[in-house]
């Protein structure tokens, strides 16, 4: 019973961490260098645009510059929107030449803003746009999810600690008479505490082991549909199981919790006993 409570309390945060581990490689966009769209002034001709492209390419904070010619842009726009016919009727192309600038600067908001400002200040540039809002949103959403996971995990671990503490308190209380005798005849606190530390270790490590098994079974169970989903999304990735690391970490965590909880529970009991 105690094993099961500890196992469930540890398996849930473990499953959450495993899920995050699996999600991380699915967000390759975050790893791609940030791109700045630079709209050039409408009066700039192709030569001037190419000159600007060459200049930007020499910048240290710029990795790559691609020129999008105005007629090319109009064609793509017409194709994607289905408005080619309407666009053909325009007497001139309203789109300017544009540059797509990949940043080699660190992926911080401040570094990107600095680059955008520098490009914006160039003559011939109408405006430089960086669509980093979606990125910020995604980042914040991930951060919020992670924190939610940590909070939930902490609550579950606290539950495990309370279950262990209650069990150990009962175990200590059941041997009250023995503790009293051993104390009077010269048993050291370490000697008195030892069996309870082993009890804590037994329940904690056992719970951790069971949590590892649960995680393993769970990942096997959901692997089929999740892998199918990956294929449907065109990803070549496969679900990553808990491996050896997760069960080992869970056993270690369980054992540590069991040991510390039994230490605390027995210390609390002994100090009360001393006071009485």
């Amino acid at each position: 019973m105690v094993w099961l409570v500890v196992a469930i309390s540890l398996a849930l945060p473990g499953a959450m961490l495993l899920t995050l581990d699996n999600l991380r490689p699915l967000i390759p966009d975050l790893e791609r260098p940030a791109q700045v769209s630079v709209m050039l002034a409408g009066v700039l001709d192709l030569e001037q645009a190419e000159a600007l492209q060459r200049e930007l390419a020499t910048w240290e904070s710029v990795e790559d510059v691609t020129l999008v010619r105005r007629d090319e842009a109009l064609a793509v726009f017409g194709e994607q929107t289905g408005l080619s016919g309407l666009l053909m009727s325009l007497d001139h192309n309203p789109l300017p030449h544009a540059l797509l600038v990949s940043s080699s600067a660190p992926r911080t908001d401040a570094a990107l803003s600095q680059l955008v400002e520098a490009i914006d200040a160039l003559s011939g540039v109408d405006r430089a746009i960086i669509d980093n809002q979606w990125m910020s949103r995604l980042k914040q959403a991930l951060l919020a999810t992670e924190r939610w996971g940590i909070a939930l995990g902490a609550a579950m671990v606290l539950g495990a600690i309370l279950a262990l503490a209650n069990t150990l308190h009962l175990a200590v209380d059941a041997r009250r008479e023995e503790i009293l005798v051993v104390r009077v005849i010269g048993g050291s606190p370490g000697f008195i505490r030892r069996p309870f530390l082993y009890t804590g270790l037994y329940f904690g490590a056992g719970g951790g082991l069971l949590a590892g098994v649960m995680l393993w079974v769970l990942s096997l169970w959901i692997a089929g549909p999740v892998n199918a989903l990956f294929v449907l999304y065109g990803s070549l990735g496969q679900i990553q199981g808990p491996g050896v690391g997760y069960p080992l970490a869970l056993i270690g965590l369980g054992a540590g919790l069991g040991w510390l909880t039994s230490w605390a529970a027995s210390a609390r009991y002994f100090s009360r006993l001393e006071a009485s």
């Binding site: 008479e177 023995e178 005798v181 051993v182 009077v184 005849i185 010269g186 048993g187 606190p189 000697f191």
Partner: peptide, 28 residues
Amino acid sequence: PRYRRRFGVVFQDHRLLFDRSVHDNVAL
């Protein structure tokens, strides 16, 4: 604890541990 080990203590109610044998009680 070390100081207390210099004393042998006999209680009125024996204070024996009934979950173990006479040998184990004395061996404590």
